[in-house]
Each structure stands twice: as C-alpha cells, then as structure tokens.
Design a protein around this nucleic acid. Structure first.
Length: 653
RNA sequence: GCGCCUGUAGCUCAGAUGGAUAGAGCUACGGACUUCUAAUCCGUGGGUCGGGGGUUCGAAUCCCUCCAGGCGCGCCA
C-alpha cells in the first residue's frame, strides 16, 4: 500500500514502468529502499550519486503519503522512512470498516476465469499427488474470486479412457462370476464388490492387480479391447456399467476433497464431449480456419496433422515433429479432443453440453454436471464455459501437450485465446524411501524419491493421509479437541504443506515432514488466529471495551507493533501479485510472516522491556485500547488470508 | 539427439522483475508457563548459494560451459 503509492510518484518523476523496492540492511537507514537510481544512472550516463540527489530533492517537494523522510546512501540508494503512526491511523480503521473485503480491489472485473483442476481418472482412489493439484486449483480459484473475477471451477472426468476400461474389464472378467453378455444381469457383477471396504480403495487394488494379470493373460487383452468398444458405443450395457462405476468413484473423490474444503461448479465428462460431437465441430473449424493438413506421403501418410516442425532426421531415424490430430484410421487423438474442449471453454465452439444438477455440496453451493439427457445450456440458470481466461491445473509432465493445444489455437487464428490459455504446471509429488516403505512399495534400487503409480498401486491414499494427520493433531494437543477442530487443523496442515512449495519444486513426501505441527505449518497459522480470538474474547468477558480512536494512537510504535502494522498493510498487494504471477507459495509465505509478526507482537509488545504486560491488563487505557485494536485488525486480516487458502478461521483450539 | 525443470545450512525449503551483511522451519544444545492459548517465544551453533568462466558499480538471481538429479519429445491416454 505505501510502496505502491511511492512507486506511482517515482514512476511519474522518472518516467519508468517498474520501481523495484527492497529492504535496507539496517532499519535505521530506512523502512524500505530502492536502487532505481543506480540502474537509471547508467542509461542517463550520469554519476549515480548526483542523479539520486536530484531525485531526492524532487521527492522532497512532493507530498508523499506516510513518508517521514527520504534519505540517500551511497552509491545511490533511496531510503524511505515511514511515518508509522500516520499509516496506522489510516490502516486500522480501514481494516475495521472493510473487514472481509479489506484489501480487495474496488472494481469488479467483467471477466470470467475458468479453472479446471483435480481431473483424476475415475477408476481408483485419489492419492496425495492428486491433492496437490486440487489444493492448488482451489486456492487459485479463491484468489481470482477475491480479485473480483467471475470464476468457474470445473473437474474433468475422463470416463472413457483406458484407465476406466481396465478396471471395468477387471471387474467383469478377473474373478468369477464372469460377465456373460447374453444372459447376465449386470447386478451380479456389482455383488462382487465387497461391502467392508471403500469402493475407490477396492478399485485401487483391483486396477493394480489387473496391470499384472494383463501382462501374462493374453485373453484379458482381447476382453479389454472388447470392453473399450462397448464403452465407446455408449449404448451397450457395459457402457452404462462403466458410467456407474466412474460415477461411484467420482463421488468418493468429491467426498475426499470436500474434507479439504474443495468444491466445484461443474463436472465435465469426457463421454459427453464425444456424444455432443465437439470433435466433429472442431474438425470443421480447423479445416475452415487452416493450420490443418492431410498428409499425402511421408511417415504420417493419411493423417491430419498440425504442422509443428516438419520432418527431422535423428540418430534413431526419420521422425515427424508435426502433431497428429486424426490418425490414418480416422480416429481422433487425445490432443484433438483436448483442442475441442479448450475451444468450448472459450465459447469458440458452436456446440454445448447438456447439463443437470448433481447435488448440493457441503459449502451450500450447487454442483452441476454435464449429462447425456440433461438440459440445454440456455435452459438452466447457470452459464458454463465462454471464459475470458482458462487455467488448466495439470502437472508439469503435460507441458508439451498443453503447449500443443495453445499452438493449435494460435494457428487457428484464436491468438487472444491462445495467450489466455494458462497451464498452471506444478511438479509431481514423489515418495521418500521411508514413505515408500511404509506403503509397501518394492524398489530394487535405492532412490532418493519413488514415483507414485496407480498402475503398480504405489502411493499414499488421500483419505489415509487425512486420517493420519488428524490422529497426529489429536496426539499433539494438550487437551481434548472437538471433532470439527481436529478436521479443520488437519485441513490447514495439509493445504499449507501442499501450497508452501514453489510450483517447480518436487515434493518428496515424507511422513515426518508432512505431519509437523510446529513452526512453519498450517497449524501455526490457525493457532495464531485462535490466539487473537481468545484475547478479544477474554477482553470482552472482562468488560474491557475498546474501539478505534485516533487519540489512542501512540506517538511512536514499538518495533513489534510496527512490524505487525507493516505486514498488515502488505496484504492487498500480496494477493494481487499472487494472482498476477500465480506463484502460490507467496501466499503461504505471507501468511506465515503475518502470523509470526502477530506472535512476536503478542510475546514482546515492548521489546527490550523487563516485563511484558498482557494487553488486557494494561493500566494505560489508551495503550490497551490501541493494542487490542491491533489484535482485532490482525484477526480480520489473518482470517482473510486463511480463507483465501481454504482454511478454517478457528476461534479457539 | 532435442527441449524444460531442479541443485542454497545436518534435513525440508523461501529468496519474481540483478541491489547493501543470503533467510525461515526442523534437528542439536541452553533458557522462559501462577500470566491475554507454551502447537509459543528467546539464545547458541551451523553456508566455497553444485564446479568453473563471463557480463557490471553490484550476481544465489543474467549469459556460457561442465557435473549431478528429475521430466518431456508416440498414428498412448
């Protein structure tokens, strides 16, 4: 808030786009500083010190809000001293007044951001790697909503992919009674499913087992091939069976992520993309708008391709870099379908899904789903798709296919949409050797990290992890906790753990690391918030009334008061910045800074003094009132920060 | 072969657009609860920012090169 305003003034004085700020090595020098004159001096061919002197003179004649003094230190840094009491005088009432909306941009953006996340194959239980995706996507959605965008959160369900086919085949043909097409009621197959185990867990094992069996048993491969076609037909009983299976798994996925306060607006089913003829429309569009070519010869003879790099010769022979969208047998590739889907997201396709309500979620919001016999888009209260921005949350391994989709959009002439197609790429979650051992993965060679794999059944299942964290939370508490508090703390711990890494950092999942409840963790944040709530509650119980009064403001703030005020003032710009660069870990970093600033203020409101007096016991009524106001302000801003990260705002722990 | 990412304290990680003396948390050791919540706080210890070159007033950050690790590049999805 202060820096932005100073930046604006400097921009007009210096005529530059960006003003970088940093913190001086010593506080006495200033509260923040800028080296802008140093970098500009070179351009202007002037001695930096002399140039900076001029700038300081100009600044002195300008009215700077909240700035007490501008000084100069060699070789040309501008140092700014903030008038903290003046800033506090403006900031605290603003926080009180705006409360939940403090820091939010005033204007409502008339743009819609479409965020797709989770998108787990509906054939087995989720694992912790999937949770990283969901938590990131959910947090991004919360940030954009906060920033005033319309958002639509969508979970893509690939119900026709090979993964579902495998589990369906396994269920039909691995154990007796086997499926007999002619005379069998499909219900007998469902009766094979054990009742004493969650269905997604059952499928987790079944899928892994099938991978092993299909390697040896050739007849299983034929059966799988048959099942694939039956599912693709859309009308065969097996197709309905597959849809039912996927639906049951999706339900368990939704239940799982709901434990981390993750909800959606829409479920998009791959089968509906196919049935609604999205690809055919896209194919026509591609042909009409160019970029697509039918290969008459070469390695890709008979295929429709998007020219990407032509033919190259490598050590392994001749290869084509062009992207095949339609195979020589006429079938469409995954990328082709993905392009169609991306076009729909932007409303560029003359096709739409049919929709129906799926149900009401625990957050009170309706969840919709695409459906084969649903309502047309213009008959329902919601409008899906037609976004201005599309954010696909997918792990980094999909970077190339995502780049292809973007490139194809560009080649079709949808340049703006291509630019607004954002792939939020994050690194995968692997298991530490210790974690791998615990989940029973057999590794021949000793590796630093073990990849999770649905195929081999290696992974920490999401719900197992949540339960383990809950147990740990209960264990660590020195008093009995309510069930809702346990859940909220587990949610905060897990979300924080998955958010605090930078996107390009691989998480090597380790139980000891992930189960921490002290220090830089979600529990610490919740604790700080609850502590603030307790102070305010206790103050009220004791009849200590306080309110914001300008006259209560001390002429000078203590160090910890000042740090807290400074951190509070940064809130709005941190969120704006995070929305801009999508470096989500900046949000967790800020949350930790804020909680730490408060805790320091709480522990040492008078740094250096022999005795620290609890706020509510202060004799000086004005100081007491002022400090309690700071607690209140913290409680509001910390609450906002927690909500943005999808964490509860616990009032007591 | 081509491309992308990573390498920072014993461990796990922050350090966006180059800035002044590189920061947290965990671990270890030593302290602080009759108190507004000790899941906290204070102190001590801990670093050739993978190696080497370069760019410049200034490099963990930019360029080159080498080393180590991960990932991607299919008429798979």
């Amino acid at each position: 808030m202060i820096r932005e305003e100073v930046a604006e003034i400097l921009k007009t004085i210096l005529g530059v786009e960006e003003i970088p700020f940093n913190v001086p090595p010593k506080r006495e020098m200033g509260d923040f500083s800028s080296a802008i004159c140093l970098s500009l001096a070179k351009e202007k061919r002037r001695p930096p010190l002399e140039f900076a002197k001029e700038v300081v003179e100009t600044l002195k004649s300008t009215l700077l809000p909240y700035i007490l003094e501008v000084t100069l230190s060699p070789p040309g840094y501008l140092n700014f001293k903030v008038n903290w009491p003046k800033l506090t005088e403006e900031l605290i009432p603003e926080i009180f007044e705006k409360a939940d909306h403090f820091g939010q941009p005033r204007e409502i953006k008339n743009e819609k951001v479409f965020i797709e996340h989770t998108s787990v194959n509906p054939n087995k239980a989720m694992h912790i790697g999937h949770l990283r995706n969901s938590v990131l996507g959910d947090t991004v959605a919360r940030i954009f909503k906060w920033l005033g965008y319309r958002t639509e959160v969508c979970n893509y369900i690939d119900d026709t992919g090979v993964q579902v086919v495998d589990v369906v085949t396994a269920l039909l043909y691995l154990d007796p009674p086997f499926f007999r097409e002619e005379d069998m009621d499909i219900q007998t197959i469902w009766e094979k499913v054990p009742a004493d185990q969650p269905f997604d867990y059952f499928c987790w094992d079944l899928y892994a087992r099938f991978q092993g069996e299909v390697e040896i048993d050739l007849s299983l491969r034929e059966k799988r091939e048959k099942v694939l076609h039956q599912i693709e037909s859309g009308t065969h009983p097996v197709a309905f069976f597959a849809k039912e299976l996927a639906t049951r798994i999706v339900r368990s996925h939704l239940d799982t992520v709901a434990q981390l306060s993750i909800y959606y607006d829409l479920l998009n089913w791959e089968s509906d993309i196919i049935h609604q003829g999205f690809w055919e429309a896209t194919f026509d569009l591609l042909k009409a708008r160019g970029g697509l070519r039918l290969e008459a010869g070469g390695p890709n003879q008979g295929c429709w391709v998007v020219p990407f790099g032509g033919i190259v010769e490598t050590s392994e022979g001749v290869r084509s870099l062009d992207k095949i969208l339609v195979r020589s047998n006429g079938s469409v590739t995954y990328t082709g379908k993905d392009i169609a889907y991306q076009l729909w997201k932007f409303g560029l396709l003359d096709k739409d899904f049919l929709y129906e309500k799926w149900g009401t979620q625990a957050n009170g919001e309706d969840l919709w789903t695409t459906a084969r016999d649903g309502q047309p888009g213009d008959h329902i209260s919601k409008q899906f798709g037609k976004a201005d921005w599309v954010i696909n949350v997918i792990d980094v391994r999909q970077s190339y296919p995502q780049e292809v989709v973007r490139e194809c959009l560009k080649q079709m002439g949808f340049k703006k949409e291509a630019e607004r197609s954002i792939h939020l790429a994050y690194e995968v979650v692997n298991l530490s050797p210790q974690a791998a051992r615990i989940v029973g993965a057999e590794e021949k060679e000793e590796k630093k990290a073990v990849a999770m794999s649905g195929r081999s059944g290696t992974g920490v299942k999401a719900r197992d992890f949540i339960e383990i964290v809950k147990k740990k939370v209960v264990e660590k508490a020195d008093h009995a906790l309510e069930e809702s508090v346990v859940s909220a703390l587990a949610c905060a711990a897990i979300r924080y753990y998955l958010l605090k890494f930078t996107l390009e950092s691989q998480i090597v999942f380790d139980f000891d690391e992930a189960l921490k409840t002290t220090g830089d963790t979600g529990v610490y944040l919740e604790y700080a918030h609850a502590r603030a709530c307790s102070i305010l509650r206790k103050a009220e119980e004791r009849g200590v009334i306080f309110g914001w009064k300008k006259t209560n403001l001390p002429s000078q703030l203590t160090e910890t008061e000042r740090d807290l005020v400074e951190t509070l003032s940064r809130f709005g710009s941190v969120i704006a910045k995070t929305g801009k660069n999508l470096r989500i870990s900046q949000l967790t970093e800020y949350a930790f800074d804020l909680a730490t600033a408060f805790t320091n203020f709480y522990e040492h409101p008078d740094p250096g003094a022999e005795l620290q007096t609890p706020f509510i016991h202060l004799q000086d009524e004005r100081l007491r009132s002022f400090r309690l106001s700071l607690v209140k302000a913290f409680q509001i801003v910390m609450g906002n920060t927690l909500k943005l990260m999808g964490m509860a705002t616990l009032e007591r722990i």
